[in-house]
Protein backbone atom coordinates (compact mmCIF):
# COMPACT_ATOMS: atom_id res chain seq x y z
CA UNK A 1 0.00 0.00 0.00
CA UNK A 2 2.92 2.28 0.72
CA UNK A 3 4.22 1.80 -2.82
CA UNK A 4 0.82 2.69 -4.26
CA UNK A 5 0.73 5.75 -2.05
CA UNK A 6 4.13 6.85 -3.31
CA UNK A 7 2.89 6.47 -6.85
CA UNK A 8 -0.05 8.65 -5.90
CA UNK A 9 -2.63 5.97 -6.46
CA UNK A 10 -5.66 6.09 -4.23
CA UNK A 11 -8.88 4.19 -4.76
CA UNK A 12 -10.96 7.37 -4.50
CA UNK A 13 -9.03 9.05 -7.29
CA UNK A 14 -9.05 5.85 -9.33
CA UNK A 15 -12.81 5.58 -8.98
CA UNK A 16 -13.27 9.24 -9.83
CA UNK A 17 -11.22 8.72 -13.02
CA UNK A 18 -13.27 5.67 -13.99
CA UNK A 19 -16.54 7.52 -13.43
CA UNK A 20 -15.14 10.52 -15.25
CA UNK A 21 -14.32 8.41 -18.27
CA UNK A 22 -17.74 6.74 -18.23
CA UNK A 23 -19.54 10.06 -18.03
CA UNK A 24 -17.37 11.59 -20.72
CA UNK A 25 -18.11 8.63 -22.99
CA UNK A 26 -21.86 8.87 -22.47
CA UNK A 27 -21.85 12.63 -23.00
CA UNK A 28 -19.72 12.43 -26.13
CA UNK A 29 -21.79 9.56 -27.46
CA UNK A 30 -24.90 11.74 -27.31
CA UNK A 31 -23.21 15.01 -28.13
CA UNK A 32 -20.62 14.13 -30.72
CA UNK A 33 -20.47 10.62 -32.15
CA UNK A 34 -24.14 10.09 -32.90
CA UNK A 35 -24.77 13.47 -34.55
CA UNK A 36 -21.53 13.36 -36.51
CA UNK A 37 -22.01 9.80 -37.75
CA UNK A 38 -25.65 10.58 -38.58
CA UNK A 39 -24.55 13.65 -40.46
CA UNK A 40 -21.90 11.66 -42.34
CA UNK A 41 -24.48 9.03 -43.25
CA UNK A 42 -26.97 11.69 -44.28
CA UNK A 43 -24.41 13.39 -46.44
CA UNK A 44 -23.36 10.09 -47.96
CA UNK A 45 -26.96 9.35 -48.90
CA UNK A 46 -27.40 12.87 -50.22
CA UNK A 47 -24.36 12.53 -52.45
CA UNK A 48 -25.45 9.10 -53.64
CA UNK A 49 -28.88 10.52 -54.42
CA UNK A 50 -27.38 13.47 -56.25
CA UNK A 51 -25.17 11.20 -58.32
CA UNK A 52 -28.12 8.96 -59.11
CA UNK A 53 -30.19 11.93 -60.18
CA UNK A 54 -27.41 13.27 -62.32
CA UNK A 55 -27.16 9.82 -63.89
CA UNK A 56 -30.87 9.75 -64.48
CA UNK A 57 -30.85 13.23 -66.00
CA UNK A 58 -28.03 12.38 -68.36
CA UNK A 59 -29.83 9.18 -69.31
CA UNK A 60 -33.01 11.13 -70.01
CA UNK A 61 -31.06 13.62 -72.09
CA UNK A 62 -29.51 10.79 -74.10
CA UNK A 63 -32.94 9.25 -74.57
CA UNK A 64 -34.42 12.54 -75.71
CA UNK A 65 -31.57 12.95 -78.14
CA UNK A 66 -32.16 9.45 -79.50
CA UNK A 67 -35.88 10.15 -79.81
CA UNK A 68 -35.16 13.38 -81.61
CA UNK A 69 -32.95 11.50 -83.99
CA UNK A 70 -35.60 8.87 -84.73
CA UNK A 71 -38.24 11.52 -85.23
CA UNK A 72 -35.99 13.45 -87.57
CA UNK A 73 -35.18 10.27 -89.43
CA UNK A 74 -38.86 9.43 -89.71
CA UNK A 75 -39.71 12.89 -90.94
CA UNK A 76 -36.93 12.79 -93.48
CA UNK A 77 -38.05 9.40 -94.69
CA UNK A 78 -41.65 10.57 -94.96
CA UNK A 79 -40.64 13.66 -96.85
CA UNK A 80 -38.65 11.49 -99.18
CA UNK A 81 -41.65 9.27 -99.68
CA UNK A 82 -43.99 12.17 -100.30
CA UNK A 83 -41.59 13.58 -102.83
CA UNK A 84 -41.22 10.25 -104.56
CA UNK A 85 -44.99 9.79 -104.55
CA UNK A 86 -45.48 13.25 -105.98
CA UNK A 87 -42.94 12.61 -108.69
CA UNK A 88 -44.59 9.32 -109.51
CA UNK A 89 -48.04 10.94 -109.56
CA UNK A 90 -46.87 13.73 -111.77
CA UNK A 91 -45.31 11.27 -114.14
CA UNK A 92 -48.43 9.18 -114.21
CA UNK A 93 -50.59 12.21 -114.83
CA UNK A 94 -48.28 13.37 -117.55
CA UNK A 95 -48.38 9.92 -119.04
CA UNK A 96 -52.15 9.94 -118.85
CA UNK A 97 -52.43 13.29 -120.43
CA UNK A 98 -50.00 12.33 -123.14
CA UNK A 99 -51.74 9.07 -123.90
CA UNK A 100 -55.16 10.66 -123.92
CA UNK A 101 -53.94 13.37 -126.21
CA UNK A 102 -52.42 10.76 -128.46
CA UNK A 103 -55.63 8.83 -128.45
CA UNK A 104 -57.68 11.86 -129.22
CA UNK A 105 -55.34 12.87 -131.95
CA UNK A 106 -55.56 9.36 -133.32
CA UNK A 107 -59.31 9.48 -133.19
CA UNK A 108 -59.42 12.83 -134.87
CA UNK A 109 -57.06 11.60 -137.48
CA UNK A 110 -59.04 8.42 -138.01
CA UNK A 111 -62.24 10.36 -138.25
CA UNK A 112 -60.70 12.78 -140.65
CA UNK A 113 -59.40 9.92 -142.67
CA UNK A 114 -62.81 8.23 -142.63
CA UNK A 115 -64.43 11.48 -143.65
CA UNK A 116 -61.94 11.97 -146.36
CA UNK A 117 -62.41 8.44 -147.56
CA UNK A 118 -66.18 8.78 -147.51
CA UNK A 119 -65.89 12.03 -149.36
CA UNK A 120 -63.52 10.54 -151.84
CA UNK A 121 -65.82 7.58 -152.26
CA UNK A 122 -68.76 9.91 -152.78
CA UNK A 123 -66.77 12.06 -155.17
CA UNK A 124 -65.58 8.99 -156.96
CA UNK A 125 -69.09 7.61 -157.21
CA UNK A 126 -70.29 10.93 -158.46
CA UNK A 127 -67.41 11.18 -160.84
CA UNK A 128 -68.03 7.69 -162.12
CA UNK A 129 -71.62 8.46 -162.61
CA UNK A 130 -70.79 11.62 -164.52
CA UNK A 131 -68.12 9.89 -166.51
CA UNK A 132 -70.60 7.17 -167.37
CA UNK A 133 -73.10 9.76 -168.32
CA UNK A 134 -70.53 11.61 -170.33
CA UNK A 135 -69.32 8.43 -171.88
CA UNK A 136 -72.85 7.49 -172.86
CA UNK A 137 -73.54 10.98 -174.05
CA UNK A 138 -70.31 10.92 -176.00
CA UNK A 139 -71.11 7.55 -177.46
CA UNK A 140 -74.63 8.73 -178.30
CA UNK A 141 -73.19 11.72 -180.05
CA UNK A 142 -70.71 9.61 -181.87
CA UNK A 143 -73.38 7.18 -182.81
CA UNK A 144 -75.83 9.92 -183.44
CA UNK A 145 -78.61 8.32 -181.72
CA UNK A 146 -79.73 7.44 -178.37
CA UNK A 147 -78.76 4.14 -177.11
CA UNK A 148 -81.64 1.88 -176.75
CA UNK A 149 -80.67 0.01 -173.75
CA UNK A 150 -79.58 2.89 -171.58
CA UNK A 151 -79.60 1.02 -168.35
CA UNK A 152 -77.42 -1.74 -169.70
CA UNK A 153 -74.97 0.79 -171.00
CA UNK A 154 -74.67 2.56 -167.76
CA UNK A 155 -73.99 -0.70 -165.97
CA UNK A 156 -71.40 -1.64 -168.45
CA UNK A 157 -69.52 1.64 -168.02
CA UNK A 158 -69.75 1.41 -164.26
CA UNK A 159 -68.33 -2.14 -164.38
CA UNK A 160 -65.53 -0.96 -166.52
CA UNK A 161 -64.72 1.94 -164.33
CA UNK A 162 -64.83 -0.21 -161.30
CA UNK A 163 -62.49 -2.65 -162.98
CA UNK A 164 -60.17 0.20 -163.89
CA UNK A 165 -60.30 1.56 -160.50
CA UNK A 166 -59.66 -1.81 -158.93
CA UNK A 167 -56.63 -2.59 -161.09
CA UNK A 168 -55.43 1.01 -161.00
CA UNK A 169 -55.27 1.42 -157.24
Amino acid sequence: MDALDKLGISWQLLLSQIINFGLLMVILQQLLYKPVLNMLEQRRQRIAEGLEQADKASNAAAEAEAEKQTILEEARREAQEVRAQATRDAERIAQDVRSRTDQEAQEIRMKAQADAEAQTAAVMADARKQIADLAIAATEQILGRELANRDEQERFVADYLAQQNGSGS
Partner: peptide, 21 residues
Amino acid sequence: TLLVDLIIILMAVFAVSRMKE
Protein backbone atom coordinates in the same frame (compact mmCIF):
# COMPACT_ATOMS: atom_id res chain seq x y z
CA THR B 1 -8.84 16.07 -15.74
CA LEU B 2 -11.91 18.24 -15.27
CA LEU B 3 -10.28 20.89 -17.44
CA VAL B 4 -9.67 18.30 -20.15
CA ASP B 5 -13.31 17.18 -19.92
CA LEU B 6 -14.41 20.77 -20.31
CA ILE B 7 -12.17 21.37 -23.33
CA ILE B 8 -13.35 18.19 -25.07
CA ILE B 9 -17.02 18.93 -24.45
CA LEU B 10 -16.61 22.54 -25.60
CA MET B 11 -14.88 21.39 -28.78
CA ALA B 12 -17.69 18.92 -29.41
CA VAL B 13 -20.37 21.54 -28.73
CA PHE B 14 -18.75 24.05 -31.07
CA ALA B 15 -18.60 21.45 -33.81
CA VAL B 16 -22.11 20.06 -33.40
CA SER B 17 -24.23 22.96 -32.16
CA ARG B 18 -24.71 24.49 -35.57
CA MET B 19 -24.27 21.35 -37.61
CA LYS B 20 -24.76 21.86 -41.32
CA GLU B 21 -24.86 19.68 -44.37
